[in-house]
Write a protein that binds this DNA or RNA. Structure first.
Lengths: 233, 233
DNA sequence: CAGACCAATCTGGTTAACCAGTTATAATTA
DNA sequence: TAATTATAACTGGTTAACCAGATTGGTCTG
């Protein structure tokens, strides 16, 4: 059989096509929660695609919690009904690549909440880690060096201290994309780093004394100086 | 070679082991952004694991934006520095499975923001979709039927109308897990659905007249009745 | 006739072989 | 000798073959 090398977007497209065919099949066969999907081999034949393509599509639907694969047994429809299934697949198919604006918007939202939770829940262990990240940042920023990475680690330490694993995961997902975009647009070159030292210290202090409201305010200040140059991105 | 069937968690563990070995390798070889990782075959031999395991680990790091694979060329270190790389990998390795409490906490946070954005940015198209979901919900709830799915679709329609693709994605990720947990604990059996009709209508109306503050308040009311039975989960 | 048992089949997961660009190296030429 | 071309090795992606547990249908036994 002929092998073709596909670009990322081409691969995405045929994967979406398979997902939509799986949806049609589930509707046609009137599959309900717990029912078994046809085997991967059968699907690959029916759709005239490779089995690995089918596997990828199934794994994506598994990631969103719509299917469950059991080894040596089969792939099963998850415990959400047909209406929700159709709606969610529709949304997944229409999902766009996240733009920078939406990333920043979501980051601010998550961090303002995370810092409040961190102020309430931080353990001594959390404080130690945050202080460590804070000092690494200060050290670099004082010497005028680029400290984007150390900045990032301080913020991730806060997310961890929030005690909310879901928010922690989401922060991990969006952070590298933001960093990349930042460096593309040279956001952090303009001597912002030095101002950041005091702002970080303020945030840390508020978390240490467990003052959620103050911590949130200080984080807001930090973001204001960070993103005031970003309007034209 | 002997083939072993692994459980999900066992697989997760050896994957984390590989990730930590990759991190050690990057540190030892002092790899910088843009540098090429050893080939998948070489890594699988060096770590004494299968190539597919290595591929999975790499794909996970790719998901978090730490590596970039280029077909017929190699896998490269992403454009974030060594310090950030180490910190992020550390976080990824320590990442826990999200608990129900953190899921709900994050859902409320995301939806309260999404509904405000939706009130500001909703298009006519968005209104149509939300109204459709709303009517489907009312229809079922009036008859006393279970309407968890229709409820979910209404909330996802709001997330879409927020115009923030990142938040939309995150909502899609957490929603099915919440639904499953809900049905496990029979949260929605107690005649909540009927009250929900008016609450949904209020939210819709606020979005239609583009009043962000009101929309947020109405969403808060909705969540209050929803989650008042959840404290003991 | 009902229930236990067994073999053939089917399943997702795993491994190995293969493909076609990419890249590094060596041979060639101006 | 330096630039250029040709060739061989290497790479991630793809396909096909294989594995062992799960399932199923029929058979045998009580």
């Amino acid at each position: 059989m002929k092998i073709e090398i596909l670009t990322r977007t081409e691969n995405q497209e045929i994967q979406n096509e398979i997902i939509s065919k799986i949806r049609d099949l589930m509707n046609y066969k009137n599959l309900e929660p717990g029912d078994k999907l046809p085997s991967e081999r059968m699907l690959s034949e029916k759709f005239s695609v490779s089995r690995s393509n089918v596997r990828e599509a199934i794994q994506k639907l598994e990631f969103y919690g719509l299917l469950v694969s059991k080894p040596q047994s089969g792939t099963f429809v998850a415990d959400i009904g047909q209406v929700a299934m159709n709606g969610m697949i529709e949304d997944i198919l229409r999902l766009k690549e996240p733009d920078f604006k939406s990333l920043v918007e979501t980051r601010i939202l998550l961090e303002l909440k995370a810092v409040r939770l961190a102020a309430q829940r931080r353990t001594e262990q959390d404080l130690i880690q945050m202080k460590k990240a804070l000092e690494a940042y200060s050290e670099k920023a004082k010497n005028g060096e680029d400290a984007v990475q150390e900045d990032l680690l301080f913020h991730l330490a806060i997310a961890k201290a929030s005690g909310n694993s879901t928010m922690n995961t989401f922060m991990l997902i969006i952070t590298p994309e933001i960093i990349t975009k930042f460096e593309e647009h040279h956001v952090c070159d303009k001597g912002l780093a030095f101002m950041g030292i005091q702002e970080h210290q303020d945030i840390y202090d508020a978390i240490e004394v467990q003052d959620p409201q103050l911590a949130k305010e200080k984080m807001k200040v930090h973001f204001k100086t960070l993103y005031q140059y970003c309007y034209n991105i």
